[in-house]
Computed example of a mutant assay.
Amino acid sequence: MLIAEVSGKFNLSQDTLRYYERVGLIPRVNRNKSGIRDYTEEDCRWVEFIKCMRGIGLPVEILIEYVGLYQQGDETVGARKELLIEQRRQLAARMEEMKKVLERMDDKIARYEQTILEKEKTLNRAQD
């Protein structure tokens, strides 16, 4: 699959895909006879994984560490698991904080809605 196709499939710019490859987030992508990147299904799985992890806010440095551990083989399974557990813990904490912020926003919106209703009632009584 050519870089333009992968870019479209995952809604990532070609520059982002090149960056991911350059910093080691995805393995070196093979090139066709013309020198154009030719992504395999395995490459695409890496792109999908990295996009997912970046989407939840994992830093590039953590992902580089994870990929490096993966490339070292099965002896790093425990370290990879611990890295993901820690990142999951941090994500859960951020989600809890976001839940509190969402509740606060909902309360504020409800107060605005109540204020608007009260003004409308006052305006309607004044017009009667």
Results as ranks from 00 to 15, higher is better:
D43F: 06
K108I: 10
Q72I: 14
R37K: 05
P27H: 07
Q127F: 00
K81A: 11
Q127V: 00
D106R: 03
Y70E: 15
L17R: 01
T115L: 08
A110P: 00
V101D: 04
T40N: 13
K100N: 13
T76H: 07
L2S: 13
G57M: 10
V77H: 12
D38G: 04
E86C: 03
N30M: 12
M98L: 13
G8S: 13
L25N: 02
S13F: 11
R28F: 06
E82N: 15
G73E: 14
Y19L: 10
D107G: 10
V67K: 12
G55F: 07
T122G: 02
I26F: 00
I26L: 03
R31Y: 09
G78T: 14
E75F: 15
G35R: 14
E118V: 07
D106K: 05
L91H: 06
K108F: 02
L84W: 01
I36Y: 15
E96Q: 11
I85G: 07
R94E: 12
L58S: 13
E65C: 06
Q87R: 11
Y20A: 02
M105F: 03
Q87P: 09
R54W: 12
I3Y: 05
E113Y: 01
V29F: 05
M98R: 15
A79Y: 04
S7G: 04
E82A: 13
E42V: 09
R125C: 04
Q90I: 05
E5L: 07
R54A: 12
T115I: 04
S34K: 14
Y19S: 02
L123A: 00
K100M: 13
E120A: 03
L84C: 09
A110L: 03
E118G: 05
I64S: 06
K121W: 07
R28L: 09
N11I: 05
D106E: 04
R54Y: 14
R54M: 11
M95H: 09
M98S: 14
L2Q: 15
E21P: 03
D106V: 01
Y70G: 15
L123D: 04
E65D: 13
S13Y: 12
I50D: 02
R37I: 07
V101H: 07
D38V: 08
P27D: 14
D15K: 09
Q71K: 14
R125D: 09
N124F: 03
E41Y: 07
V67I: 15
E61Y: 03
N32R: 06
R45L: 13
Q14F: 07
